[in-house]
C-alpha cells in the first residue's frame, strides 16, 4: 500500500500544481493577448522564448535554473538576502521553475483562442461603450471561457507530470520538494513495484480523464462559441 511519504508527495504535487496554475492563469492572459495581437518586431522572439520549454529537454531548463538559483548569482542571491533561504532545493524554487516550465501549456491555448476571436466582436463592444478592460471581462473572457479551462487543466496536468526540472533543482526532500514523479522513481529504484504501479496508474488515469474532458467537451464547446 501507499506509504505516508507517498501521500505527502501526492499532496505536495497537487499543491504545487494548483499554485502554479493559479499564477499562470494570472500572468498568461495578458501575455497571450499581446502575443496574439502585437505587431512588435521582437514578438517572434518572445513567442519562441515562451514556447522553449516545449522543445528543450527539461534537464537543460533545470540546469540553467539551478545555476541562476545559486546564492552566487543575482536571482538566488537576491532571494537569500530577502528571505534568508536558498531558492534551490526549496518549494518556492520549484514553483518558479514550474511556472516557467508549464507556461507554454497555458499561453498557447489562450493565444489561439484570442487569435480566433473575431475582431468584429471587440468593435461591437466598443460601440456598446465598453473600454478595453471592460470588453475583456464582459465579452472576451466569457467567450473564451472553455479555452481558459483548457489552459488551466493543461498547465495543471503538465505540472503534475514534471520530472526532469524537479530532479535538477528540487532534489528529493520529503514534504518540501519530493513530488509524485520523484516518489515513483524512488519506488522503482528500490524495486517496490506495487507502490510504483499504484502511483503510475493513478497518474495515468488522472491525466487521461483530464485530456478526454479537454478534447471531448471543452474544445468543441469553444469551437461552437467562437464560430456561431
Amino acid at each position: 500500500m501507499l506509504t505516508e511519504l507517498d501521500y505527502s508527495a501526492i499532496i505536495l504535487t497537487f499543491k504545487l500544481a494548483g499554485l502554479t496554475t493559479l499564477i499562470l492563469l494570472i500572468i498568461s492572459p495578458p501575455l497571450a493577448w499581446w502575443l496574439a495581437r502585437s505587431r512588435f518586431v521582437l514578438r517572434p522572439f518572445i513567442e519562441a522564448l515562451v514556447a522553449l520549454p516545449l522543445v528543450l529537454p527539461p534537464t537543460v531548463l533545470g540546469f540553467y535554473l539551478l545555476i541562476s538559483f545559486s546564492p552566487d548569482n543575482f536571482i538566488g542571491g537576491f532571494w537569500l538576502s530577502l528571505t534568508g533561504d536558498t531558492l534551490a532545493f526549496s518549494f518556492v524554487g520549484l514553483l518558479i521553475a514550474s511556472v516557467i516550465y508549464s507556461l507554454p501549456f497555458v499561453v498557447q491555448p489562450l493565444q489561439s483562442a484570442f487569435v480566433n476571436l473575431d475582431k468584429d466582436y471587440l468593435e461591437v463592444a466598443a460601440t456598446l461603450g465598453f473600454n478595453p478592460i471592460e470588453t475583456f471581462y464582459k465579452v472576451v473572457f466569457p467567450m473564451v471561457l472553455p479555452s481558459f479551462i483548457i489552459a488551466g487543466a493543461l498547465g495543471f496536468a503538465h505540472t503534475v507530470g514534471e520530472f526532469g526540472v524537479v530532479l535538477m533543482i528540487g532534489g528529493n526532500i520529503p514534504g518540501e520538494t519530493q513530488l509524485l514523479s520523484i516518489a515513483l522513481f524512488d519506488h522503482v529504484e528500490t524495486l517496490q513495484y506495487q507502490q510504483a504501479h499504484l502511483l503510475s496508474f493513478g497518474l495515468l488515469a488522472f491525466s487521461m480523464t483530464l485530456l478526454v474532458l479537454i478534447y471531448g467537451v471543452l474544445k468543441k464547446r469553444q469551437q461552437r462559441m467562437i464560430h456561431a
Binding site: 468584429d120 468593435e123 460601440t127 456598446l128 465598453f130 465579452v139 461552437r224 462559441m225
Partner: peptide, 30 residues
C-alpha cells in the same frame, strides 16, 4: 469609439455567440 456615444448596426448582426438574445440586449444597457 466607446466615448463617442454612438450606436452602430453593422452589415452582419454580430451578436455575441456566447449569450442568448436577451443576454445580448442586457449587455447593451450596461
Amino acid at each position: 469609439t466607446e466615448k463617442r456615444h454612438i450606436g452602430m448596426v453593422f452589415q452582419e448582426p454580430r451578436l455575441f455567440p456566447h449569450l442568448d438574445a436577451l443576454g445580448n440586449l442586457k449587455l447593451a444597457t450596461k
